[in-house]
């Protein structure tokens, strides 16, 4: 039996509405229906401080606050620092992955990605479901 609460609140962050819709739909197919959206790091940070989330799935390259800056803010916040944080980004250079890992990202998915990869990374971060 799954130990993962499928009704957990998840915040997805991307400046492309298309990608927000893709991730939302794929999460829905996997059984996660409690999904909120933000279009940059600063809007996401505000949501994270207003409501308790169980997972953040964020793009990197956004204006005005990037996903990397959001990750740094989250890890520096005593209330948010343990929050699982998955980066989904087109930034596919080794230096990016290493920088994100050093900043405390929970897992890293490179775009374009598929549903199977998303499911695998979610399971790695949240546990099997």
């Amino acid at each position: 039996m799954s130990s993962v609460d499928m009704s957990m609140p998840i915040l997805i962050v991307d400046d492309y509405k298309t990608m927000l819709r893709i991730i939302r739909n794929l999460l829905k197919q996997l059984g996660f229906n409690n999904v909120d959206e933000a279009t940059d790091g600063s809007a996401a940070l505000q949501k994270l401080r207003d409501k308790e989330y169980s997972l953040v799935i964020s793009d990197w390259n956004m204006e005005p606050m990037s996903g990397m800056q959001l990750l740094t803010e989250v890890r520096a916040d005593t209330k948010l620092k343990e929050l699982p944080f998955i980066m989904i980004t087109a930034e596919s250079k080794t230096e990016n992955v290493i920088a994100a890992k050093q900043a405390g990202v929970s897992n890293y998915i490179v775009k374009p990605f598929n549903a199977a990869t998303l499911k695998t990374k979610l399971a790695a971060v949240l546990g099997n479901f």
Binding site: T18, I22, A90, K111, P112
Partner: peptide, 13 residues
């Protein structure tokens, strides 16, 4: 449908 969602990622890239 899942394949179509995945393929629509082209717009972001």
């Amino acid at each position: 449908v899942t394949s179509i969602y995945e393929a629509c990622g082209f717009q972001d890239i």
